[in-house]
Amino acid sequence: MNFRVLRRQTWLYLGASLAAFWVLVPIVFTALAAFTPKQDFYLWPKPVVPRRFSLDTMRFFLNTHGVLNSLLNSVWVALMTLGLTLGVGAPAGYAMARFLFRGREAFRLGILVTRMFPTALLAIPITVNFIRWGLYDTLLGVALIHTAMALPFAVIITTGIFLGVSKELEEAAMTLGCSRLGAFARVALPLALPGLAAAAMFTFVISWNEVFAATILTVQNRTLPAQVLTMLRVSPLYFRFAGGFFMIMPALLFMFFIRRYLFHMWGGATAER
């Protein structure tokens, strides 16, 4: 390896590591904060690595009235959102990937436009409606609105996923004795499954992270972000740090699982068709 290549490599890795540092350090800090004993937060200067690790802060956070409940609520809402979103959106994604039909382009554009809607614009009137429909302050209500927000993504992502499964495979199955539905179930679905799982996790994360709608739509049945947001002004700092940590961890985990699909999904999302 000659000197120039070596120097180039050094710069590459230096730059890459620097960026990695920038991404990771705040996450590390949050983790540290979450396991720092409560009283350490009042030390000055605060030791960056806590003098001893303790579950104090976490315990306090989880034992705070409403938090554990909101955690469960968040999981439920995210699961419902996931089911609703894929149930409604995946067929549309399939249609977009498989058929050329009149209005296809208009539909695609419509989907893209919906992504321009500010959450506030949806959440406020829907909340007003939900009060009338008896869906106010229910988990289903939150899931419904989260579905609305995740649906455009789901359609775009599943379109990409089904485009990745060759149409000829399904046709082959059809010539071998399958009905259209059978061909889908036996060939397209198994092959799309990993991608669909990634889409599902992505949907889960969207719901898990959403705070605006969840907050204005609930009073008793808060989700975790809603709970933390509404308690911000009245909670001690360590409560907030623990909250941050709790919200981040599952999301990071999911991102790790779907990492290989991210680019595929966005590649499909930005690719033509």
């Binding site: 991404v23 996450i27 800090f29 904060a33 200067p45 605060k46 933390v228 700092l237 941050g244 991102m255």
Partner: peptide, 30 residues
């Protein structure tokens, strides 16, 4: 993959993460 990680982090959580850093007795000052 590392750089893509924050994709999963919500705006509220991100705010709290940086609060731990920038708050008066936070990590940066320390």
């Amino acid at each position: 993959y590392l750089y893509a990680l924050p994709l999963g982090i919500s705006d509220l959580a991100a705010g709290l993460v940086w609060l731990a850093i920038f708050t008066q007795h936070g990590y940066l000052n320390s």
